[in-house]
Design a binder for these strands. Structure first.
Lengths: 255, 255
DNA sequence: CCGCCACCCTGACCAAAGTCAAGGGGCCGC
DNA sequence: GCGGCCCCTTGACTTTGGTCAGGGTGGCGG
């Protein structure tokens, strides 16, 4: 608790006396985590020190499963960054059933829109897997925004890039068959432009399936079919025999 | 040419002496156009006067089909708003074929990301249907951004809302069957919460189909099936017998 | 060792969307 | 009126993804 880098050790400093790891459940830690937070769409491209200052003004929360983070209608004076665990955003239907609108996994952020534009959260949020969150207050955020003229500009820029990614995903969902989406997902995991590549799936097949918009059974079948195109998968490691050939398969089949 | 509202008559002023319609190929004009431009994700929520000032510093371009607007690598010192016509963004593959990355139709904007972050366009842009564009320079944009502290904030907010729309569209594409997407599209066209509604399709079925990510034949079949749920379509006008019933159909079928 | 569980694969079946082909109706210029 | 075109619909057929059920493997605790 006497860690000099409060409230959050993005990059644990030498003098840190906090007992144990500061954020025990992290998949990433230290520099890797810092890199991830900095790669958040909202922060992508920001100076390290600006981010550090913002983090310094923010709070780290350790939340247990089944905690209600906030409910719909609550004042939205901050937004959240998911460092670890999972948070679901949901609405309650008139008849009492809940409808999950979105599930946030590390590392992502949510609630910016509510905070920035509406002032109140439109949905309920509940922790569905023990989580570590950063709560960023509106005041601190605006301070950051105004601390430097370029910050707002940078944020706009990074949101634009975010938008580009999202709309390209929409295009893919609309015009590509599932197997191509899977193939492109795999291709995106490697920097190799040709030859064979060995990549590790970042999460299990269930999540990968939902990521590309299909059921896990279909994913199995797709991976089976991709074997003919030189994609060998074993556990969560995948071997692409010929990156370029696979890439050409995708583009030419896509018309 | 002596129109007082240069370079663009968003809302033609009484004293306008410009001969004929200022932007002849517009589908929308006057207040309707202004509304559309103001609803651009980037500008959504901005004050009318701020927008007017920005437009005043910008240039309207009338471009002919097959014009190359810019090529990849060109300095990105402005971005564009498509008022009319169509623009395609494409890349050239090593073997000389072109791969279309995106097609922009009215009213939308492109190139913000390139302008804001990279400084150079990553793709080629070509007019594929006689177009009217607004070219917004970086300088003018930044001036707007700095003219008022709240502008940057507002733009961030509206981009966040934009993001929400996009990610909700992604969710829909992934977890809803086509007929539900069609139904929700129709429901989104009316404000009615119950009873019967009469809506007009904003574009032809071909485009509507691609909007929801299916072929036009499938759209026909979907609309045929929706007839059983009290959706009568004739030409581009659609009658929803019971808005609430249809909405319930959607949510309960979606689990 | 066993049972349990999480994760993954597979096969059989069904429903639904894509594809290909044909045709209807409205609009337009000749 | 006629032919052509555009937009849309329909039908027959194919392909593919969803669903359901079964089963395999590996880790873990009893």
């Amino acid at each position: 608790m006497s860690c000099p880098c409060r409230p959050l050790c993005l990059v644990p400093k030498p003098g840190c006396t906090r007992p144990g790891t500061p954020l025990p459940r992290h998949r990433a830690s230290g520099p890797a985590l810092a890199r991830q937070v900095m790669a958040l769409p909202l922060f992508d491209g920001l100076d390290h020190e600006v981010l550090e200052r913002l983090m310094g003004d923010s709070t780290a929360l350790a939340c247990d499963r089944r905690t209600l983070l906030f409910s719909a209608g609550a004042a939205a004076d901050s937004f959240y960054i998911v460092l670890d665990g999972q948070v679901k955003l949901f609405a309650l239907t008139p008849d009492g059933r809940e409808s999950i609108v979105e599930v946030f996994t590390p590392v992502s952020s949510f609630g910016e829109a509510a905070m920035l534009s509406m002032g109140a959260f439109p949905l309920h949020a509940e922790i569905i897997e023990d989580a570590t969150l950063i709560k960023v207050g509106r005041r601190a955020f605006i301070n950051t925004l105004q601390s430097d003229r370029s910050v707002g500009y940078r944020m706009l820029a990074s949101l634009c890039r975010w938008h580009q990614r999202l709309s390209s995903e929409i295009r893919h969902l609309k015009e590509q068959p599932p197997w191509q989406r899977v193939a492109e997902f795999l291709l995106a995991l490697t920097d190799a432009r040709e030859g064979t590549a060995l990549v590790a799936l970042p999460f299990n097949k269930e999540i990968l399936a939902s990521r590309v918009g299909i059921r896990r059974e279909s994913l199995s079948r797709v991976l089976a079919r991709l074997r003919d195109m030189g994609v060998r998968t074993e556990g969560n490691s995948v071997r692409i025999d010929d990156v370029d050939a696979l890439r050409r398969h995708c583009t030419e089949a896509g018309q």
